[in-house]
Amino acid sequence: MKAAERPSQSSWMKKTRVRSHAFIIEPAIRKKYADVLKTTRNTVNPDQMAVTVKGIRETRNGEVLVEMGASVEARNMFSEALTAAVWQDGQVRQLVLQDSLDVRDLDDATDEQEVRKALEKLPGLVNVGEFKINLSKPSRWSTRVAFIDCYEINAKKLDVLGHIRIGWVSCKISRRFVVTRCYRCHGFGHIAVSCKEKDRSKSCLKCGKKGHMSPSCKEEPHCYLCEERLGSNSRSDHIPGSFRCLVYKEHCGINQ
């Protein structure tokens, strides 16, 4: 996705279901889902490896999908056991969970390669070359945001780190939060069909005024959500649903 098309924190978003680690077993030619499933169940004992199997089902392609919960070490043991069990009857591959991060406060001169090189210098990350990195357009303050998609294990480490030095700047890095947003009132935590709040469906998402929409808005940002929820003395000089929005942070469970 190009930088100009990348959804911002204020985009319409839906909660995703809790994801599990999973393995795919692809049956060999002339082998069926039932055959492979029977072989693995008769050969592999998850309890011996402290693996909890959350579900087993057949994919559209006739593969065996095994969802599980376990430590990294246990998953590796389970993978080896599955591979040994199916042997010539199929192939085993692990589905690696992906996650997303935002890197903020980049200066206008920063490019993708500079972000990647900064990540490569950090210890403990895996497969940095496979990170997907996109940069936003410069803001009116001549700063950029880098949007990163990577393995979940890397995202957790970077989120704990909190900051990363890119160029001259110590940039804030954090995992992207996903929250349901209502297009009727522009609020969070519900959808339009159950909305009982003020109808803002014809109002600008950026400033809250009627007569235009956010792509053509020339007004200053005004967070009517913070103003209504926290009072007129609260800071409202930001776009509703941006990372400066306290109402958005409240629904994400972020400490103020």
Rank of each mutant, 00 (worst) to 15 (best):
R235K: 12
G253N: 05
V126Q: 15
N76D: 14
V145E: 01
L230A: 06
T59K: 09
I164V: 15
Q91R: 10
L65D: 03
M1A: 12
R181G: 10
Q48F: 08
F177H: 12
N76P: 00
I56A: 02
E152G: 00
K196V: 14
K172P: 02
S242G: 03
A85Q: 07
C185R: 03
L101Q: 00
T40F: 10
D35H: 09
D199E: 02
K54I: 07
A34C: 05
W141I: 12
C182N: 02
D99C: 05
G167Y: 03
G90Q: 03
T180K: 09
H190D: 13
R57N: 12
K32Q: 15
N154P: 01
F23G: 05
H163R: 13
V115D: 06
G189S: 07
A84L: 13
F177C: 09
R144C: 10
M213G: 04
R181D: 02
A155D: 02
V169P: 01
A34M: 08
E114G: 06
A146F: 00
K218T: 15
W168N: 13
E197S: 13
R17P: 14
R19D: 15
L97Q: 13
E220Q: 10
H251F: 15
D111C: 04
R165K: 13
P46Y: 07
V86W: 04
G231D: 11
V145M: 13
R140Q: 15
L65W: 07
S142G: 06
T143R: 11
C207I: 06
A22F: 09
R200G: 04
D159T: 11
D35S: 10
A22G: 09
K2W: 05
G69W: 06
K2I: 07
R104D: 14
L95C: 10
G167D: 14
T43Q: 10
I24Q: 12
M77W: 06
